[in-house]
Computed example of a mutant assay.
Amino acid sequence: MYQISYAENLQDNSTACRDRERLAMDHALDLLENARNKGASSIACIEALSYLCRLWTLLMEDLANPDNDLPEVLRADLLSVGIWILKETDAIQKGTSDNLVGLIEICTLIRDGLK
C-alpha cells in the first residue's frame, strides 16, 4: 500500500494552489486586456476591475494570514503590490486614471512569478 508522506502532500497542495492562483491571474489579465481594448469607461473595464479587486482582496487576506508559508519579506512586498493595485483600480473607476497598462504589466509579473 502506497502512502503519501505529509511533506509530499503539502508540496502537492502548494503546487495546486499556485496553479489555481496562476489561472485566476490569467483570467484577470484576459479581462484587463479586453478592458484596455474597449476603454476605461466600458462595461468590460468595470467587470475586469471588479474581478481584479476581488482576486487581490483574497490574495491579500491569504498573505496576511500568519500561517502563510511565504517568507515574511515577500509577503509584505506582495501586500504592497496588492494595495497599489486596489488604489489604482479605484482611481480608474473614479475616472482619475486610465492606467490599465500598468495593472496588466504588474499582474503579468506576478503571474509569471507563480510558475
Rank of each mutant, 00 (worst) to 15 (best):
A35K: 01
L49E: 09
D77I: 01
E8R: 10
R36C: 11
I46W: 10
N99C: 10
E47Q: 15
D12Y: 05
H27I: 12
Y2I: 14
A91Y: 04
A16F: 09
T57L: 11
L109D: 04
L78W: 05
V81C: 05
T57I: 01
L114T: 06
L29V: 10
R20W: 14
I43K: 13
Y51V: 03
Y6Q: 15
D77V: 00
E61G: 14
A24M: 01
G39V: 00
K115C: 11
V81Q: 04
H27N: 14
R111M: 01
I46Q: 12
N99Q: 06
S42T: 10
D90V: 11
L114C: 06
V81T: 00
W56D: 02
N68K: 02
G82P: 06
N13I: 12
D19A: 15
Q3W: 06
A91W: 02
V101N: 15
V81W: 02
R20P: 02
L31T: 10
L86Y: 04
R111W: 02
P66N: 04
A44L: 09
R54P: 07
L31N: 07
L74I: 13
L29S: 00
P66Q: 06
W84Y: 08
Y2W: 07
L70C: 05
P66C: 04
C45P: 01
D19P: 06
T15M: 13
L109V: 02
R111F: 04
I46K: 13
N99E: 08
E105Q: 03
L55A: 05
V81G: 06
L58D: 14
R22T: 11
A48I: 05
K94N: 10
K115E: 10
S41E: 11
D112A: 08
D112V: 01
C17F: 13
S80K: 09
S14P: 00
D67L: 15
G82W: 11
M25A: 12
A16H: 10
L59W: 06
R22N: 09
R75W: 01
N37Y: 00
P71V: 12
A44M: 08
L103P: 07
P71F: 12
S41I: 04
A28V: 14
I85N: 05
I83V: 13
L58Q: 14
E88F: 02
K87C: 02
A7V: 13
C107D: 05
E72I: 12
P71N: 11
K115I: 15
L114S: 00
I46A: 12
H27T: 15
G113M: 02
L10I: 09
S42K: 04
L31V: 03
Y2N: 13
V101T: 15
L78H: 00
L29Y: 07
C45V: 07
R36V: 08
L63N: 00
D12A: 14
S14C: 10
L103D: 07
L114V: 02
Y2M: 11
H27A: 14
E72Q: 11
S5I: 09
